[in-house]
Amino acid sequence: MNDTTITVRRKFDLTNFFLSYGFYILFAVMFVVCGIISPFFLTKDNLMQIMWGATTLLVVAAGGTFVIITGNMDMSVGSLALCSSAIAVYAMNHGAEFSHMVIIIFAVGAAVGAVNGILVTYCKLNSMLATLGMMTLLRGIALNITNGGAQTTLPDEFRMAADFKIGGIAVLIIVSLLILILFQCILRKTRFGAYCYAIGCSEESAKRIGLPIRKVKMAVYILSGICAAFVGFVTCCKVGTYSGTIGNEMEFDVVTVCVMGGTSLLGGRGNIFPGTFIGVVLLYLINNILALTGASPYIYPFAKGLVIFAAMYVDALKNYRRRT
């Protein structure tokens, strides 16, 4: 056992290269191919359309990336988006103003995030199962207080927020991108971000070194909760009405795009920009090109399913190679 046998890991390895950067390459290729297939694809309107669709998922996946990097899951985000807006609608029916509704939406997000955090840290529940329970529970609350998810027209301010533009770009898109960049900064440049990675890498080591594991996990869930509430708010803005379909299947989209962007489900590695960002845009790109080529809308879930399999398989391959 001389040292050459141990320091072998830095050599260039084609498989590893593809595993690490495959989705970026795929993204670039998709972009070019889509441009060739449909002349309409590369127009400003269409690209804006993609971004406009992606705003909600971008923000909630950014929050979700934090959770996954610490080695946990948050499956309650979709229901939380629904429930927080349902509670806002309930408040509206009891005389609340637009501004109050916005505050309520975000407060509910933060509160539910905190409950998730308590379940995972203090009650020591498995994060996946705890938040799955929360997912069902929140949907139940939403159904109850809105009489089975009946559509409700919201105050005009919501639509106005959606139509508000700066330099021809919807302000919601700008806000989402700013949040994304801010979160990436937090992840890479702050102590909190470093702790997230450390806990995800090895919770045991983090415990022995004395890092504040519980506080960090609580913060991460609260962050994820607020991001989910943002989805509720933005969806209300876009549509102008409340409906029971807000946040449908969003939790699975979050996991998919995080993994597509290179975040490991075992925790400890990944990033929001470019990783999760590319993941989200890629997912919407697929829908977009299917729509442009006039494919049947019923094929969308099928295509998405294939993408999920591919992403999970690549993640499993990467984890296997790291271990051996």
Binding site: R191, A194, Y195, Y197, A198, G200, C201, S202, E204, S205, A206, R208, I209, G210, L211, G268, R269
Partner: peptide, 18 residues
Amino acid sequence: PLFFSSMSVAQNVFIGNL
């Protein structure tokens, strides 16, 4: 050794007092 695999050496040295 106790360590955090995806983080840099420097971060590992100073994780307790960044």
